[in-house]
Design a protein around this nucleic acid. Sequence first.
DNA 1: TACACTAATAGATATTTTCGATTTATTAAT
DNA 2: ATTAATAAATCGAAAATATCTATTAGTGTA
Lengths: 295, 295
Amino acid sequence: MNLRELEYLVAVDDERHFNRAAQRCFVSQPTLSGQVKKLEDELGVLLIERNTRQVSMTDVGLAVAQQARKILTEVKAIKEITQSFEDPMAGELQVGLIPTVAPYLLPLIMPAVNLNFPKLTLWLHEYQTAVLLDKLNKSELDLLILALPVETDEFSEIDLFEESFWLAVPHHEALGRKKNIHLIDLDEQEMLLLEEGHCLRGQALDVCFSAGATENNRFRATSLETLRHMVSEGLGMTLLPELSVPKKRSKKDSIQYIPFNDPKPRRRIGLIYRKGSYREETYQQLAKIIKKLFL
Amino acid sequence: MNLRELEYLVAVDDERHFNRAAQRCFVSQPTLSGQVKKLEDELGVLLIERNTRQVSMTDVGLAVAQQARKILTEVKAIKEITQSFEDPMAGELQVGLIPTVAPYLLPLIMPAVNLNFPKLTLWLHEYQTAVLLDKLNKSELDLLILALPVETDEFSEIDLFEESFWLAVPHHEALGRKKNIHLIDLDEQEMLLLEEGHCLRGQALDVCFSAGATENNRFRATSLETLRHMVSEGLGMTLLPELSVPKKRSKKDSIQYIPFNDPKPRRRIGLIYRKGSYREETYQQLAKIIKKLFL
DNA sequence: TACACTAATAGATATTTTCGATTTATTAAT
DNA sequence: ATTAATAAATCGAAAATATCTATTAGTGTA
């Protein structure tokens, strides 16, 4: 078997036309026809049903073409591997982030990343922790930015920064007058939280639990911004991670943002990747740049 | 690039010796040397550090060889794909089972499977549910036999059979006199259970909870057979899945096995595989044969 | 210095891939 | 029925590639 044969097969599956497929592969039609036939002979099955009027794939053909695509993708990866050794800070990276971090962190770090590593292209993906871990595992993603710790020994972690929680209260609430608050001030309070699946929900629940607060079970927000709108509508208070707290705040805002006194409740944000990945150097340098911004 | 070049590279990585690597590939040493050099030229990096005395892989070389192995494995899979279309009931299958099912189910089904599908080779793997699902996801396994339901939409399920739970009590216990028992007879009883990680533990806990029984927290068994020995030593009672209950029982056994009256507590055992797998036909037929044994 | 071992090189040969030209088959239009 | 248009298969020559044997060159050891 041969990688070119596989390319030809994939081209036929895409084009459903031998001539066009051949053009796409920059070879003549007889060449492509011949190689496809050779592949069929070697495998001992008919991959493509064809007459002079129409081309269609057999069931086996479809399955083999699918596998061929996978193989060709893995082959491309070889070139990326070697390039990443030549220059660790060049190439493409599939990065996954959790939704409660991505929109607030990316504007902060992307300019610095692009400036320092102009040859590095980041493809950004936003999913909840469980999905991210699965995709990292399956090598669909290379690198995750999420809340630590993650209990698994298949991945390596790098700490990035710690993020405190702030209290977001509607303007009219008594608590909104305070400049700082203590955890115990939350005792007996009812909090709005995110829906199931967001790791932030679990972290906030922990804080609520240790402070003696409870969850408002009538509403659960699907995103941090929904949550913020709910607070702004006066429906209740919530905990927000520091990065999502606006830098410019005024006493007239419909939401008052209040920091905690020590010991501040907080979460760790970090970066994880598959243990022993050949891209380790890339990840370390990326982490270094991001950390610098939080000093 | 070329699959043969990748084979040569892997051979060198394995043998650390050009001559032996060449022999392993059934080519002459100059051929192998030349092709490896060609690969290095194409990738633009040194993969192997060599002089006439010793051969060692560079970091890039190791990473590329690793990727090459992956590719060659995927290529092999093509042949398996076509063969499985030729005859769905031929070839190799990586089957995963949970530890509370494997040792009791396999002796029952393997003779029938081997008889009906002599060309099918099953490789059997025993892990707890979470690990099985991960390996199925990563395509390290093709097929799982475990307790349903499994909450995920990436896999397809086929029901195999339902398995009732039996009560296993030490010979001397009062409950051991009974021929049948009701769930409510377990009220206030303390049960021995498996350690964390076994799905059977969760299923038994459910039963205990609904019956008003509690767990004995001083011991947790690592396997069903350990659990059975603990009961046999008189340390307490437990729930066992039907398949693990001996067919021949006597009143003199140190363990008395007692079935439940309706509604019997039970669990569903089934088979799952990746949705849309080209092996679907194979799995359906396997399921059919297994089901037949439980009619 | 001679020897044993190993990888690289050179030149010849064999194999495989490719191309252009042609053939065969099918459909649509006249 | 005939013709034209389209598309895939086939053929034979050429080009490209992989392989072989024989030889060379480098490295460590006795």
